[in-house]
Structures are given as C-alpha cells and as structure tokens.
C-alpha cells in the first residue's frame, strides 16, 4: 500500500518536471571579463583591463565568464562541438555522443549513401585528403561521415558503404543521428540540406576540420577544390 502511495507521488512529481534538458550547469570560474562602462561596443568584452577604444574610459570588470558548461566536459571550450548532447549510431552499431570522439582531429563531411551526384566526389575528396596525411599521424585523426538521411542510413547500410568504398579501417567513422540532432549539427557546420524526394537530398558540399577539443578550424567548400589548405590545417592541429 505504501509503495502504491509513493508511486502516485512520483507520478505527480514527474508530470511536473520540465521535459527540457537543462543538465548544462554554468561552471563559473574566476576569469574576470572587462567591459566599457558606457558599453560603446554593444556588449563587447575584454579579457584584460584597459581603456575603451571608443570613449577612452577605463574598462570595468563584469560578471564572471563561464567557460565550460557541462560537468563532465573538462577542457572543452564554449566553441566546441562537444557541447552538443545528441546521440549518434556508428557503422558498428555503437551508440555515441560527439564528445566520445574527443582527443583526435576530426575531418567531417555530410553525405547520404544513396546519393549519386556529388557524394561520390565528396567521398573521393575525403580519400584524397587522407592520402596526403603521413601514416604516422592517422592514429590521431578521425574521418567522419555524417548521414543526412537518418531514416535510411542505418548502421548496417553505413557499414556496407564503408566496405564498398574501402573505408573500413579504424580512422573512418560513419554516423547516423536523429532528425533534430542532425539539423542541429548541420547548423553548427553551416551545412544546408533539403529533402527533395524520399530518396534524394540537396546539400552543401563542405568538409570541416575540428581540432582535438572540437573547435572548428577550417572549412573547405565545393567539390574537387584544391585541398592543400585543408591538409595543412589538419597537420597543423594534429600534434
């Protein structure tokens, strides 16, 4: 009978809870930021004290700046993609969050496996970039293909695609997300995409490079473009 009562209370408590996921706790640290007392630059802040470049008044310390927002995200800055909490499936069927990829340079592209137009060329671009990386560095780099067709690109299909394209080694990863997680991720990359029929999508052709902390370092836009700068950035951010 008691359990019955508790159950009841629990149910009520649950129904009152916000379904919004607000597990992001501001982790205030002691970094002070400074701002012009006249706010000449529309809320612009400075890391160090000094004078405002416009009205020449002394900058004043402002509220404390919060750097990392997730409890278990040590060393992740607020520009990092590892702040995203969406769930993904890999081609091996594992369930991961983006921060599970932390620690390696990430080279990311968005494609879908049934694509006949640009995707094979994007895949080729990724392969060319990989070929330009010295073998010794490959263990610190992850090449990630994110599917924009999560309703069809299940892990099995992604795995088959990986095998077909001889991209089944450790350093290739294929991800299937949820519709909302995917849209959020695409927006972080500024990738545009649109379903034009159940099996066809339009999408931007962008290859993005993130450092080991998940900060965006470089984006290569277009197909078959010169990838020298992309490779240079990858080598630059990979220790």
């Amino acid at each position: 009978m008691k359990t019955f009562k508790y159950l009841f209370l629990m149910l009520f408590a649950l129904s009152l809870l916000q379904n919004c996921n607000s597990n992001k706790k501001a982790n205030s640290d002691n970094d002070l930021v400074y701002q012009c007392p006249m706010d000449c630059e529309n809320g612009k802040t400075y890391k160090e004290s000094g004078t405002c470049p416009i009205c020449k008044m002394d900058l004043q310390p402002l509220a404390q700046l919060s750097k990392s927002v997730l409890d278990d995200n040590e060393g992740i800055t607020d520009a990092s993609i590892f702040n995203l909490t969406s769930q993904w499936h890999t081609e091996e069927g594992e369930s991961i969050q983006l921060k599970d990829l932390k620690g390696k340079t990430l080279v990311v592209v968005m494609i879908y496996t049934s694509c006949k137009a640009a995707c094979p060329r994007l895949v080729a671009d990724m392969r060319h970039i990989e070929a330009d990386i010295p073998d010794g560095k490959l263990k610190d780099i992850q090449f990630v293909f994110v599917s924009i067709d999560p309703e069809n690109d299940f892990p099995e299909r992604l795995k088959a695609f990986a095998k077909e394209n001889f991209m089944d080694e450790e350093h290739w990863t294929f991800l299937q997300g949820t519709k909302s997680g995917l849209r959020e991720f695409a927006n972080v990359l500024s990738v545009k995409y649109k379903e034009i029929s159940p099996i066809d999508f339009s999408h931007s052709n962008i290859i993005s490079v993130f450092d080991a902390q998940g900060e965006l370092k470089f984006q290569q836009e277009g197909l078959g473009v010169d990838n020298t700068q992309t490779v240079a950035t990858i080598l630059d951010v990979t220790p």
Partner: peptide
Amino acid sequence: NSVLITGESRKDVDKDSDLFCGSAAI
C-alpha cells in the same frame, strides 16, 4: 537551412554549382 540559395547571383544561376548537390531541383 533547407533553403539552398546562396543569395549571390553568380553562384545561384549555375545549376551545376559545385556548392550544392542536386541544386537543379530547386
């Protein structure tokens, strides 16, 4: 972000634009 026009006329007129896959459909 499903609107695939760049707003730049030089990029938009070319249906074979390398920026977007399948841009002829829009």
